[in-house]
């Protein structure tokens, strides 16, 4: 008996470490400790062991059983590890790029627009939208642009045929022609007609000019325009807004200056220049960036605001021009070609 147990253990230690798969293991396990296993068979012989030897043999069987179980556990653990390793496969190469798609990117015009509206939101301006197809009233008449003004020429402005009908662009009078808005200032009029002061809005959007496309001109481009209407709004307030916008955008050392100018819908009117130390591809001390002025009383009268009570300012600028300045882009057409090498640069 003693010898048989020792032989069994020796056989197991030789066989078990060589097992490679789980079925082999299960078979081996059955052979040793299963109901018909060898150890089980030996244990069944216990009855025939003389009484005085029983404690010693019993102890020996238990020891053998424990040792065998340890060997089985070791074999199982080894097989499980091997199985896990097979499931994992070889180690990854951490230096390879992920083949999964990365994030997309926002267009630089969107980035600039969003940055501007964020800056303006901090000082109370909320974003409004207006139609790109406009009527003569909203684009010109209400903005004090007389009917014989050159800007209204079919040479400079895109018109739709007289037969055109738009379901969701309201006309002031039935004889007006539809056109593609030449500036976002038309949104000022729609906003003022819809509500009452105080008004603090920014209207970014697409505008159209009948212009030759070249490095600095495009048949459509984008503007951003601010309008503030309240009591006692002054030229000084307007200057403060421009100083704030460009200091926020380009740093505290940025300066702005006004030059007198003429726009039909503001009086007085100014062009705005800015001076900043770290704009790429700029070698002039002052760069023209937009136009502004105090809302002309005529405009207020037209929308039914009493110019004796209300005053306000408006400021407008081109977004492409701003983006070109900020990023150092030298051709406006790049914004509309959507070369992915261009699009990926700004996110």
């Amino acid at each position: 008996m003693q010898d048989q147990l020792a032989a069994l253990l020796a056989k197991a230690s030789a066989e078990l470490p060589a097992l490679a798969t789980r079925p082999e293991f299960e078979a081996a396990k059955a052979r040793y400790v299963g109901p018909n296993g060898e150890l089980t068979a030996l244990m069944k012989q216990m009855g025939s062991v003389p009484k005085e030897q029983k404690p010693a043999v019993g102890k020996l069987i238990n020891e053998t059983k424990t040792a065998l179980q340890a060997q089985l556990d070791a074999a199982l653990s080894r097989i499980e590890s091997a199985e896990l390793a097979a499931r994992l496969g070889p180690a990854v190469d951490p230096t390879l790029p992920s083949p999964d798609r990365g994030l997309g990117t926002l267009h630089p015009l969107t980035l600039v627009r969003e940055e501007m509206t964020r800056i303006l939101r901090k000082v109370g301006f909320s974003v409004v939208e207006g139609p790109e197809v406009e009527t003569e009233y909203y684009c010109f008449d209400a903005l004090n642009t007389p009917s014989d003004h050159p800007a209204r020429d079919a040479q400079d402005t895109f018109y739709l045929p007289e037969s055109a009908r738009f379901g969701n662009v309201s006309k002031k009078s039935p004889h007006e022609k539809y056109l593609l808005r030449t500036h976002t200032s038309s949104v000022q009029i729609r906003t003022m007609l819809k509500g009452q002061p105080p008004i603090r809005i920014v209207s970014p959007g697409r505008v159209y000019r009948r212009d030759t496309t070249d490095a600095t001109h495009s048949a459509n481009f984008h503007q951003l325009e601010c309008l503030y209407v309240d009591k006692n709004v002054t030229v000084r307030d307007l200057k403060a807004l421009l100083d704030y916008i460009f200091a926020s955008l380009l740093g505290k050392d940025t300066k702005t200056r006004f030059r007198p100018h003429y726009f039909g819908y503001t009086e007085p009117s100014f062009e705005v220049d800015l001076s900043a130390s770290h704009l790429p591809k700029v070698n002039k001390p002052w760069i023209e960036i937009g136009g502004c002025g105090m809302v002309d009383p005529v405009v207020f009268k037209d929308v039914g605001y009493d110019p004796e009570v209300w005053s306000g300012y408006a400021f407008g600028m081109g977004l492409e021009r701003l983006a070109m300045l900020l990023y150092g882009i030298d051709d406006i057409r790049y914004f509309y070609q959507n070369d992915v090498r261009f699009l990926k640069q700004f996110a």
Binding site: G104, H107, F158, L180, R206, N220, N338, L343
Partner: peptide
């Protein structure tokens, strides 16, 4: 979702 934003002419 991995899309790049484009801006094209309206006309």
């Amino acid at each position: 979702a991995g899309f790049h934003e484009c801006v094209n002419y309206t006309l």
